[in-house]
Design a protein around this nucleic acid. Structure first.
Length: 428
RNA sequence: GGAAGGAUGGCCGAGCGGUCAAAGGCAACAGACUGUAAAUCUGUCGACGUUAGUCUACGCAGGUUCGAAUCCUGCUCCUUCCA
């Protein structure tokens, strides 16, 4: 597809476009000048994971081309919970929880998008500000009259819930009206003419576009991104049963880097386009790599993605650990002398756990639990029986095996090839 | 308000008095092979315990029984139909 607007062209080339309400008119509007567009998120979780990254990156491209992003915090809608893509009703959140989530999530957005006062700087609005004061009767009369149940029932989010014989409350059913109202309000107050979101938002977005057309007599647009799945068809964002969180508090940068490093061969090009700022020509070159050579592209993907989420400063430590661990098959840490208590100072991006020196010699299974590599002692034993456990790269074959205090008071524990932890024996 | 059906491990889903820590599938974890990839094959997959075994678990609370995921009673929630 060819566009006049460089922004839309890039969004398209990088694979961000799934559906659009009107390609031609949106293209014309974006080519003509700077427009304002928004995405919304509901602060129903503490943090965002890589699954949420698609729309964030979309907004980033949008801003890079001189357009103005608005981020809507769904403080009001969070009280309702969007039924789209959800099997069952979510529990209600307290105001405090919501506020906490908002702050944590906005700090993540700030990594990717420039907020401020200058033109094309993004700004944040909380839909609770206007939704909380909506009068029920007025709302029903002024906006409810513009929606038909017939149409609402035809939306996928609603249909799938009904088809699966799961309840859909009236509260949730109203979600789409409120989202449409948000868009309408932004259109009127901030001349916002584009709403972006995941493909599951299509129905909600279209409602807003229609509401704007009916009430403001203006054209507004909707643009959705495809649901990003991995080559094996998995919804993106989980690994080893854990979500890949974007913030460091919930996922160490080393693990974040590893997530990208372990990308499926088939996903490398696509992910480079969506989740890094690298020029498309460069990505095309990287994509040509074959076989083991592709690992270079994966490392670049990991670097770029980590740089965005965690900042450039996170990289050196990760690189050092990776080089030690995988390239020279070394320990994965380096010693930097001793502290005042005579305990070793260790530099590594692997998880670190402390054990008092007095507890040595200690059963390896127990160490695995302290280091967080096993959830229970039984699990630790199972790992040992499966031949997965190593202490300082020496295989542990007996579940009763003990580890003795190493001379430098540091040892590396491994479960499998990729999961490691550093244990430091401390005096106090 | 009435009637019928349902609730099982992370998810789906079988079981319908003992042989049930509960088939099968998915997901996950580990091993082998590789390139920190995929595919494939193998093993593991409630907790504690070296084994024996103990404990906790089939929506919640009671009961019947030598014995209950399975039967009975009450409750909660869900779905469908009628009003």
């Amino acid at each position: 597809m060819q566009f006049h607007s460089a922004c839309l062209q890039e969004l398209h080339d990088r694979g961000f476009i799934y559906q659009c309400t009107d390609y031609e008119k949106l293209d014309a509007a974006m080519a003509e000048g700077s427009i304002t567009g928004y995405v919304g998120f509901d602060p129903t979780a503490k943090s965002l994971h890589v699954g949420n990254l698609v729309t964030i990156m979309m907004l980033r491209v949008f801003q890079r081309h001189g357009h103005t992003p608005i981020v809507i915090v769904g403080g009001g809608t969070a009280k309702i919970a969007d039924p789209s893509g959800k099997d069952a009703m979510r529990r209600e959140l307290s105001d405090d929880e919501i506020q906490e989530n908002v702050e944590s999530i906005l700090s993540i957005y700030a990594q990717y998008i420039r907020f401020g006062e200058s033109p094309s700087d993004a700004f944040v609005l909380n839909n609770d500000d206007w939704l909380k004061s909506l009068g029920y009767i007025e709302f029903l009369r002024d906006y409810g009259s513009l929606f038909t149940i017939n149409r609402m029932l035809s939306f996928d989010s609603v249909k799938s819930r009904l088809d699966r014989e799961q309840s859909l409350t009236f509260l949730e059913f109203n979600y789409m009206l409120l989202q449409a109202y948000d868009y309408w309000l932004l259109n009127r107050e901030h001349n916002c003419t584009l709403q972006m979101g995941g493909s599951d938002q299509w129905g909600n977005i279209v409602n807003g576009v229609e509401l704007i057309r009916k009430l403001n007599k203006r054209e507004a647009f909707g643009l959705t991104a495809p649901l990003v799945t991995t080559a094996s068809g998995e919804k993106m964002g989980k690994s080893a049963g854990n979500a890949i969180w974007l913030n460091e508090a919930q996922l160490p940068s080393y693990d974040y880097w590893q997530f990208w490093r372990n990308t499926d061969d088939k996903d490398v090009g696509r992910f480079l386009r969506m989740f890094t700022d690298l020029p498309l020509a460069e990505i095309a070159e990287l994509e040509k790599l074959e076989g083991a050579e592709l690992n270079k592209a994966k490392a670049i993907l990991a670097d770029e993605a980590t740089k965005l989420a965690r900042g450039e400063k996170a990289l050196p430590a990760i690189h050092e650990t990776v080089a030690s661990l995988f390239k020279s098959k070394d320990t994965g840490y380096s010693l930097k002398g001793q502290d005042d208590n005579g305990n070793p100072i260790v530099e590594t991006s692997l998880p670190v756990a402390h054990v008092p020196t007095s507890s040595f010699p200690i059963v390896v299974a127990e160490l695995l639990v302290t280091a967080g590599l096993a959830g229970s002692k039984s699990e630790a034993r199972r790992h040992i029986q499966a031949g997965a456990v190593k202490v300082d790269d020496a295989k542990v074959s007996d579940i009763a095996e003990t580890a003795t205090l190493p001379e430098n008071h540091v040892l590396k524990l491994s479960v499998g090839k990729k999961k490691h932890a550093i244990l430091i024996a401390t005096q106090h």
